[in-house]
Amino acid sequence: MAEMLYDTDLIIIGGGPAGCAAARMAASVGMRSVLIEPDRLCRNLYRIPALNNVLGGYTSGPELAGSIVAELKSTELCRLELGRHVTSLHADDDRVTATLDTGTRLTAPYAVVATGVGPLQPRDAAWITAPEGLTLRPLWQAEADDAEGRTLLVLGGDRPIGTFLRAHPATDTRLLVAYPAADAYKVEEIREDPRVTLLLVEHLTLSCGEGAQVSAEAVGQDGVRRAVLADAAHLSIGNAPTAPLGDLTRGADGYCPPTDQHPRVIVAGDLRSARFQRIMTALGSGSEAALHAYYAARELPATG
């Protein structure tokens, strides 16, 4: 039987911390990889102004991202396909095929899918009513200049609010954080910050105010209605998985549990579930995914 020919040893879809870690680990054991990323490497990590939970002494996202990107670009066994995205992923008994937006098809014995998550919008939250088509930026993407001397309405109580406050300790801002009861446990870390006003709501209706301002009507748990006025609105309501089309098994929540996938498709990073969305877990799962492919390729050699 002739040995099956592939374009590379490992296809990696997604250039965040998990995908980059997979490529680095693959190279360390002699595997060639192609990493496909529609934007730049570690694009979201560059937008995180403060870190307090990663090893290596890194205190900001850009600092850590710069280190990861420099190391990956010097990794000779990894070929980067930046500015490209995967339109479909197909897994067979003997190979995985990724089709790019250019029409190019790449084959490998295994693929690591680490496309991560993207921010939910107001239309995705049942407790928010907003103008049709409204798209807002997550709070963690806001700069200090966006907040200085202003009142920001924050929709949701997700953890990036604490990251924003730690990153801008001297910024003179007021955050009006409107959140549902389900987010109550998330706001404990920001409850004592004097710049934060917490608004526990049953429902919030968002509308445009005069000029650049935004206005909203908040209905509390007791049914009392309250008018809210702010200079701008930002999101902190969580994320949704962004997986490519094709042979990926998704759960009811849209995430892709690793144990439910085709044996040749390995899911890593935030795409696995909402429970462990941290930089350190992404790095670890990406490295583990590459080793999984390395050992599996030797236990089950693909032949044709």
Rank of each mutant, 00 (worst) to 15 (best):
A2I: 15
L5G: 13
I11F: 05
G16Q: 05
G16C: 06
A18T: 04
G19D: 05
A23I: 14
M25I: 10
A26L: 03
A27R: 04
V29T: 12
G30L: 00
R32P: 01
I36W: 02
P49D: 08
A50E: 09
N52K: 14
V54G: 00
S60Y: 05
L64R: 08
L64S: 03
L64C: 03
K73Y: 13
S74H: 14
L89Y: 11
A91P: 11
T97C: 07
T97P: 03
L100Y: 08
G103V: 09
A108H: 10
Y110T: 11
A111N: 14
V113F: 00
R123N: 00
A126I: 06
T129C: 04
G133K: 02
G133A: 00
L134R: 04
L134T: 07
L136Y: 14
L136I: 12
L136M: 13
P138M: 02
E143N: 13
G149T: 04
L153K: 07
R159E: 14
I161E: 02
G162K: 01
T163S: 08
L165C: 00
R166H: 10
A167K: 00
A167T: 02
H168G: 07
L175S: 01
V177A: 01
A178P: 09
Y179D: 03
P180K: 03
A184E: 15
A184L: 06
E189H: 13
E192F: 07
D193S: 02
L200D: 15
V201I: 02
H203D: 08
C208E: 15
C208Q: 15
C208H: 13
G209T: 08
E210K: 14
G211Y: 12
A212Q: 15
Q213M: 04
E217Q: 13
Q221F: 13
Q221K: 14
D222K: 06
V224N: 05
L229G: 06
A232Y: 01
A233F: 04
G238D: 11
A240M: 12
T242V: 13
G246P: 11
T249R: 02
T249H: 00
R250A: 09
D253H: 05
Y255D: 12
T259D: 15
V267F: 05
G269A: 08
D270S: 08
L271R: 01
A274W: 12
I279K: 05
G284N: 15
S285D: 15
E288I: 08
E288W: 10
A289P: 07
Y295P: 11
L300Q: 15
